[in-house]
Write a protein that binds this DNA or RNA. Structure first.
Lengths: 175, 175
DNA sequence: AACTTCTGATTGCAATCAACAACCGGTCGT
DNA sequence: ACGACCGGTTGTTGATTGCAATCAGAAGTT
């Protein structure tokens, strides 16, 4: 049970004339074939550039769809664009606080999917670990994402993300 | 931290040749404009018939889309169809266990939406209460849904659903 | 300077999906 | 017999998606 927290709301732009139901607004924003998949790859896969997302995605998103989703997510306030010093026309996409707070949602999404679908073990290990880690692990993960995406710090070697990646590699190598 | 639970998986049919990532499979199933909204109305609104869902929906779904979603959700194993004794061509839709276990996901969805969008108070009260109730309230709600949708028992007057409905009505009347 | 590769996209086209309105046969209470 | 109600279906239109090819600017290589 958590303390009564102040209701901080209204940070995200809203399409006009829409139902004020939070479920509906979230579905309108994220309820499509690719938005959450792209966010998953940025969040868990550590991919921050167009090419990385295009090439390393398990599902094979088309480039026009990726471009459209990225600009939609930037417009919605879930991603920010940054110049990459290494290449003048390289663009780095970073998660915002709003996107980072999707971690509990992504956790539930993965947990439900791996509970009810016949998923491949190496791809569901992320979801299983995160689900079993509970809110505590979720909080640590979110702090880690804040350090990396909001403060520009490098990934820590002993963090949740490293743990998830290691578990994935172990599972992938033994199959 | 919960006990190592047996991995029960593979109850839901899967489109062939798809990525085995649980996030992706869930997004493929529920990641559209209406599926989660329909489930929300069955779950929280207590609507179980076509006309109820068509008429009482806040967002105004079209009848062909509703029909398509209902039959998709039945095919996917999230809803079941039942004859209604009161009217020979009336059909009752009930949640399955898989759908009931979406409660934590719906909770996170609503919590995130009411945290980040400027939602109307009466429509977000459900989400806020459920989020503050924590996993405990979620479990009670799921048990209640099981009693109603799987065992055919009537809604209990002192349950979570009644509490949510009451809170909504209070909020709606004072605005 | 020329060539190649890499960057984040854009374009054209076909197929699918969503929104809207009209309509349908069967069922029910009166 | 009548009108309201039941769960849908049909047809149309416009938007979205998926796919392949292509683009111009920037950087590295020779």
């Amino acid at each position: 049970m958590d303390m009564p927290q102040p209701v901080r709301t209204g940070r995200l732009p809203v399409p006009e004339g829409k139902s004020g139901c939070p479920t509906n607004l979230t579905v309108e924003l994220l309820g499509d074939r690719w938005s959450l998949v792209v966010l998953r790859d940025v969040m868990f896969g550590g991919h921050r550039h167009f090419r990385e997302l295009l090439t390393n995605s398990v599902e094979g998103i088309a480039s026009n769809i990726l471009a459209a989703r990225l600009s939609k997510l930037v417009g919605a306030g879930l991603l920010t664009r940054h110049d990459d010093p290494s290449h003048r026309q390289k663009i780095e996409y970073r998660l915002t606080e709003a996107a980072i707070e999707l971690v509990p949602l992504m956790t539930q999404l993965g947990a439900w999917g791996s509970r009810w679908f016949p998923t491949s073990p190496e791809l569901s290990i992320h979801a299983q670990l995160l689900a079993r880690g509970g809110p505590d692990m979720g909080e640590r993960f979110m702090d880690e994402l804040r350090a990396m995406h909001l403060e520009g710090r490098p990934q820590r070697a002993d963090g949740v993300l490293a743990e998830l990646t290691l578990a994935y590699e172990r599972a992938a190598s033994t199959s």
